[in-house]
């Protein structure tokens, strides 16, 4: 266990330094991730000019988006297509460690670049932040990160079978944007749709932490949200492990 953690740390460190060369590109990636929350905010403040805590919700959502998005279609699917994943397969440990390390490096970069952006927005919009709500949202944010990682990983792993992994991951991102609370805050969904959206994995990956942080949910809703996160975590964990195993088996059988 400690050996695995140490290896993840080494990979993360190495990837972090490697990406130093691409920092300009990383800035554009972070800016690109800011677009959908900004767009959602623009739409809803135009549609409902007197809605309360819309800006708190969308700034929280921006933070969640920056913390949970993983570019696994590039960092994992591309190595599969190019066959360079085999470099990892010949090492005496699970290749998932390299992927995890890359994801930590990616997260660190996003935090470094994203923090000033978020800070500026908080400063400019002068949003009321309730510390208790933010604290309550932190575990949900961590869970959302894990769930979305597993979800994106499962989609990116389709690269073992098809050439369309980029499209599939992009499609997953589109669904997350539309149903997860970015295009439409889940509270604004009309009724039958709303309960579907609330229990969907997309809310667990994106909207829930933002809704908690902005104080839009009552106690029961918060508890239900956490429960659904736990359910989706378990489901995606099983799915991803199965997909990963059969994918690697296929990769080694076909030879990449």
């Amino acid at each position: 266990m400690t050996r695995s953690l140490r290896l993840i740390g080494i990979y993360a460190h190495r990837t972090f330094l490697e990406w130093m060369t691409w920092r300009g590109f990383l800035v554009t990636l972070v800016l690109g991730q800011c677009v959908t929350p900004v767009l959602g905010f623009a739409v809803w403040s135009a549609a409902l000019p007197d809605a309360s805590n819309l800006s708190t919700y969308y700034i929280s959502l921006l933070v969640v988006q920056l913390m949970t998005v993983f570019q696994l279609d590039h960092t994992l699917a591309n190595p599969i297509y190019r066959g360079t994943l085999s470099h990892q397969l010949v090492r005496p440990h699970s290749p998932i460690l390299g992927t995890l390390g890359t994801c930590f490096a990616e997260r660190l970069w996003f935090v470094i670049i994203g923090a000033p952006v978020v800070g500026l927005l908080v400063f400019l919009s002068n949003v009321p932040l309730v510390v208790a709500n933010v604290l309550l949202a932190l575990p949900a944010l961590a869970l959302a990160m894990v769930v979305r990682f597993l979800f994106t990983l499962a989609l990116a792993l389709t690269a073992f079978w098809t050439q369309q992994a980029h499209g599939i991951v992009a499609f997953g991102a589109t669904l997350t944007f539309l149903i997860g609370g970015s295009a439409v805050p889940i509270l604004y969904f009309p009724d039958p749709l709303r309960s579907v959206a609330e229990s969907s994995p997309f809310s667990a990956m994106l909207g829930l932490p933002a809704a908690i942080a902005s104080g839009s949910l009552n106690r029961d809703q918060v508890v239900m949200g956490y429960a659904w996160q736990a359910v989706w975590l378990a489901v995606f964990l099983i799915v991803t492990v199965v997909v990963w195993r059969s994918g690697v088996r296929r990769f080694t059988a076909v030879g990449g």
């Binding site: 590109f25 554009t28 990636l29 800016l31 690109g32 800011c34 677009v35 959908t36 767009l39 623009a42």
Partner: peptide
């Protein structure tokens, strides 16, 4: 700036 154009396009 491919990603930036993509983002701006969404507006």
């Amino acid at each position: 700036l491919d990603v930036v154009y993509d983002g701006a396009w969404q507006f």
